[in-house]
Design a protein around this nucleic acid. Structure first.
Lengths: 192, 192
DNA sequence: CGATTCTTTGAAAACAGTCAATCTGTGTGG
DNA sequence: CCACACAGATTGACTGTTTTCAAAGAATCG
C-alpha cells in the first residue's frame, strides 16, 4: 500500500533512503470500503491525501439536494479540500469512495515539514499544483466554449480510466448537466 | 512603473537590495494603449507578466466567432498563458488591453533563474499559484451549482474593482452567458 | 431470483439564445 | 458646442435547448 506511493514518488523524484523513511514515518494509512466517506461537509480537512488504490469522488450538495461533482480521484491522484486545508474553514465538500480504496494521509504540519526538509518534494508538489491549475483552466474554458457533446467526448478522452469505472450520471454531474440530457446526447451522437 | 512591482513584492516578501536589483535587471517594461494586444492566438507565450497598471482581458474566439473571456487582469495581477509558457505550444488565447496599461515582462528563463536564486520569490510564486488554483476551483463550482443571478452577484462581489471598469457584456462572456440574458436577469433582479 | 441502481424515453415546462429594433450614453470631429 | 457616430444596454418575438417529472426497460449485485 505504501509501495504504490513509493513508486509514484520515485517516478517523479530521486530520494535517499533516509528521505523515504522520513516520508514513510508521517504517512497514515487508511482503507475505505466502497460507499464510505473520507470526509464530509462541515469537517475541517487537515491532510494531504494520496490515493494509492481505488477511486473517490468529491462533491457538494446544494439546497435543492442536487449533487455537484467537483472531482474524481483515482489511484495516483491526490484528493482532499485544499480550501479547507489552508483556511481552516469547514469544508463544503464530501469525499466518498466509489470503490474500495486505499489512501495515504499526511497531516498538514508533517507535510510542510517534509516540503522544508526535502526540496525536490516541495518542487514536485508545486509541479502537481501547476498541472492541476492548468487542468482547472481547461475545464473552465471547455465549460464555456464547447457543446455538451464535445464536453462529454472531451471528458472520456481525457480521463478514460475514470470514465469507464463510473456510472454515466456521475459524468453528467461532473459536466454540470442532467443525466437525461447526457443520455439523449449519447443516443444522438451514436447515430452519426 | 517598476515601483508598483517593487511595492507588490515588498508587500509579500522581504528582499535585499541585491535581490531587488537581480529582479529589476530582468524586467522588461511594456506600455500598451487601450485596444492593443499583449499577445495573440497562435503566438508562443514566453513570459511571466505582471500588470503594474491598467486592465487586460484574456479570451479565445471559437469557430462561430464568439468570444469567451477566461480572465480579467487588473493592476497587481499576473497574466499570460501558462499553458503555452510551459508546453511551448502556440497559445489559444488573446490578451488585450482594456485600458492603457503598463506591464512588466520577465522571460521564462530569467524567471526560473530568479526562482532558483531567491527562495522566497519561489515560495511567493507558488503561493500565488495555489491561490489561483483555489479561485479556479471556486469558479468551476459556481458554474455548476449557482443560478445565473447568483453567478453574477458572486462576480461583482468577488471582483468589484474589475466589474465597474468593464462593460456588462464582458461580464456575461466571462460567466458564459449571452449579454441579453444578463440584461434581463439584472432587470428582474432589480425588481426584488 | 429479487432488489436496487442505472439508463432510456416521452411529454411538458422552463430557460437561455438569437436576431432585430430601439434606446442610452459617450466621445470625437466639424 | 453641437451633431453624429459608435459602443453598449435593453426589449420583444421567436427558436432551440435543457430540465423536470414520470414511467419503463436494462443491467448489476447480493
Amino acid at each position: 500500500m505504501f509501495d504504490n506511493f513509493k513508486n509514484y514518488l520515485e517516478n517523479k523524484i530521486t530520494l535517499s533512503d533516509q528521505e523515504l523513511e522520513l516520508i514513510k514515518d508521517v504517512c497514515i494509512l487508511k482503507k475505505l470500503q466502497k460507499r464510505q466517506y473520507l470526509a464530509q461537509e462541515g469537517d475541517v480537512w487537515q491532510y494531504n491525501a494520496f490515493v494509492s488504490n481505488g477511486l473517490l469522488k468529491t462533491f457538494s450538495i446544494d439546497q435543492k439536494g442536487q449533487e455537484h461533482i467537483m472531482n474524481f480521484s483515482p489511484e495516483n491522484y491526490w484528493t482532499g479540500d485544499r480550501e479547507s486545508l489552508t483556511t481552516g474553514n469547514p469544508s463544503d465538500f464530501n469525499i466518498l469512495a466509489l470503490e474500495n480504496s486505499e489512501i495515504i494521509l499526511i497531516k498538514k504540519d508533517d507535510f510542510e515539514y517534509i516540503c522544508q526538509k526535502i526540496p525536490q518534494f516541495y518542487k514536485m508538489v508545486n509541479d502537481i499544483l501547476h498541472k492541476s491549475f492548468l487542468v482547472s483552466q481547461k475545464r473552465i474554458h471547455a465549460n464555456m466554449s464547447l457543446s455538451i457533446e464535445e464536453k462529454y467526448h472531451n471528458f472520456i478522452q481525457q480521463f478514460p480510466s475514470v470514465a469507464n469505472r463510473i456510472p454515466q450520471h456521475m459524468i453528467a454531474s461532473y459536466l454540470g448537466i442532467s443525466a437525461e440530457t447526457l443520455s439523449r446526447i449519447r443516443a444522438q451522437s451514436a447515430k452519426n
